Simulated scan of single mutants.
Amino acid sequence: MAEILETKKDAALSEQYELLIKQIKSLLSKDERLITNLANLTAALKQTFDKISWVGFYLYDGELLYLGPFQGKIACTTIKIGKGVCGTAAESGGSIVVPDVNKFPGHILCDPDSKSEIVIPMFKNNKLIGVLDVDSDSYNSFNETDKKYLEEIVKFLTEEIIN
């Protein structure tokens, strides 16, 4: 695939995700390095959705989540398992949608402009790989549609791309 991403900003949210996922399946390759795939995936998400102010991966090293490829402002470099939204999602193994980060107990403030967040944990063979973290500078930016499709993207990534 050429490095051109087609977006339809005026389409329904589900249609935007379906178009994105179709392109991601052509853009990412298990023959590429993980960092390359994650970098292009973050760029594709940021380019597709105006509501995203920050998107990136925190990867698990057996002890901490450490900052991986991202798009947006500078970010926290490490997160302890069980801390903040990312660490909580990693510990629980479930996706977390946060309409207002100020109301999430123990939220880690990396960007004072962040208002809402969604975090999708990534597992391969029942082992934590990391999390996909997506932030918005608006409240209530993410919903069940985002959760469904971001989980689908992470599933594709962990099942088809990550060795």
Rank of each mutant, 00 (worst) to 15 (best):
S14I: 02
N102W: 14
P99V: 08
T36A: 12
A75G: 13
Y17W: 00
L67T: 13
L157D: 13
Q16Y: 00
D111N: 09
L64G: 00
N143I: 05
L41E: 13
N126Q: 13
T158L: 04
T48P: 04
D113C: 06
K73A: 11
T145I: 10
I35R: 04
T88W: 08
G82L: 01
I79Q: 08
D113F: 04
S116M: 05
G93A: 00
G72K: 00
T48Y: 02
K73T: 10
K30Q: 14
A11Y: 03
V131F: 02
I52N: 06
I74W: 13
D50K: 05
S136L: 09
K83M: 15
A89R: 08
L5P: 15
Y58T: 14
C110G: 12
G68L: 10
L41D: 15
L34W: 15
V131A: 04
P112I: 14
R33F: 12
T158E: 12
L67G: 06
G84R: 02
E63R: 15
I129H: 14
M1E: 07
E144S: 02
V85Y: 03
D146N: 07
L19E: 08
Q71R: 05
G87K: 02
Y58A: 13
S138A: 13
K127F: 03
I153M: 09
K25P: 11
K148R: 09
R33N: 14
K147F: 08
V134Q: 04
L150H: 03
L150E: 02
L38W: 04
C76Q: 03
C110V: 11
E151L: 10
N140K: 03
V134N: 06
L59G: 11
R33P: 14
E159K: 01
I96A: 13
A39D: 11
Y66H: 02
T158S: 10
A12E: 15
K155F: 04
T42V: 00
V134I: 02
D111P: 07
T145P: 09
E15A: 12
R33M: 08
Y139T: 00
G106K: 04
L5H: 11
V55H: 05
Q71I: 04
H107T: 12
L128T: 09
V131N: 03
E152G: 04
K22C: 06
F142Q: 15
G93C: 05
M1K: 11
G84D: 15
G130V: 02
C110D: 14
E3D: 13
S95R: 10
F104L: 06
Q16S: 05
M1C: 05
A44W: 02
M122E: 14
S53M: 12
K148A: 07
V154C: 01
K46R: 13
I118E: 14
L132N: 06
D135K: 05
A75I: 12
Y60N: 07
V55K: 11
E117V: 03
I118D: 11
F123S: 10
G84H: 11
